[in-house]
């Protein structure tokens, strides 16, 4: 990728982030205004949307830092189960605000994978937040977020899955091409919930092959394939 391409990519990501941040900031502003009008204030909501907004900004900064770093990313052996467990804990509050059920679906035991813990967690949280927001924007009555992992020929597939039957590999590839050029590049997700996906894609690209569309327990979602740690497997 040339410097100019990198700059454009970064600019598109920043635009998507700005779009997505409008919504949590608007929620916070309105809750304060309602409090001034004498209505009950939902501090939990203010706190959880503010936390997610901060998380998105931090994840964006991390993705920029990693993509501009000169040296290769230091990967370490990680347990996918423990990463997904932590992601579920971090998303719990915001999911509750949107009445979204979070499920951990880890079919079987996995060998450790090679990854960068901070990036993996940040990417998964951003991805999960986008799925939660997109489902509430689409008016899905029983929103559900599944954090799942399964084995594949090339490694361990870990991702976020939800009620997005229309999500296809072609659609996602097209969305990546249109990203930054179209208002709503990914039709399944509103224009205000796609930044988390592109930030996650950027973070995954620094340690694995980037995001891809995946199926898990009859659900569609976006996932990353992580290489197993062969050293530890041999032991």
């Amino acid at each position: 990728m040339t410097t100019s391409d990198q700059y454009k990519d970064s600019e598109h990501l920043l635009l998507a982030l700005a779009e997505q941040l409008k919504l949590p900031l608007l929620h916070i502003s309105q809750h304060i205004e309602l409090a001034k009008m004498g209505k009950e204030t939902r501090y939990e909501h203010i706190e959880s949307v503010a936390d997610m907004a901060i998380h998105l900004v931090d994840s964006y900064l991390l993705s920029r830092q990693l993509s501009s770093a000169q040296s290769a990313l230091q990967l370490e052996p990680l347990s996918v189960s423990s990463v997904l467990q932590r992601v579920a804990e971090r998303l719990e509050k915001i999911a509750k605000e949107y009445s979204c059920d979070i499920e951990l679906n880890l079919s079987g035991r996995y060998a450790p994978v090679m990854g960068h813990r901070k990036s993996l967690e940040a990417a998964m949280i951003s991805l999960g937040y986008s799925f939660i927001e997109a489902q509430q924007e689409s008016g899905i009555r029983k929103p559900r977020l599944v954090l799942g992992a399964h084995k594949s020929r090339s490694g361990i597939v870990a991702g976020t899955y939800g009620n997005h039957k229309e999500l296809t590999a072609n659609m996602f590839q097209r969305a990546k091409l249109l990203h930054g050029r179209a208002r709503q590049s990914l039709p399944v997700f509103g224009h205000s919930s796609s930044a988390g996906i592109f930030i996650a894609d950027s973070l995954f690209a620094t340690m694995a092959g980037g995001l891809h569309v995946s199926r898990h327990s009859k659900l569609s979602g976006l996932a990353v394939t992580l290489a197993p740690n062969t050293q530890l497997t041999l032991v």
Partner: peptide, 16 residues
């Protein structure tokens, strides 16, 4: 209004 939170807020304000 598709957003549950915003919808609820607009409703509260207008009903007030």
């Amino acid at each position: 209004e598709p957003d549950r939170i915003l919808g609820g807020n607009y409703q509260k304000a207008l009903e007030q």
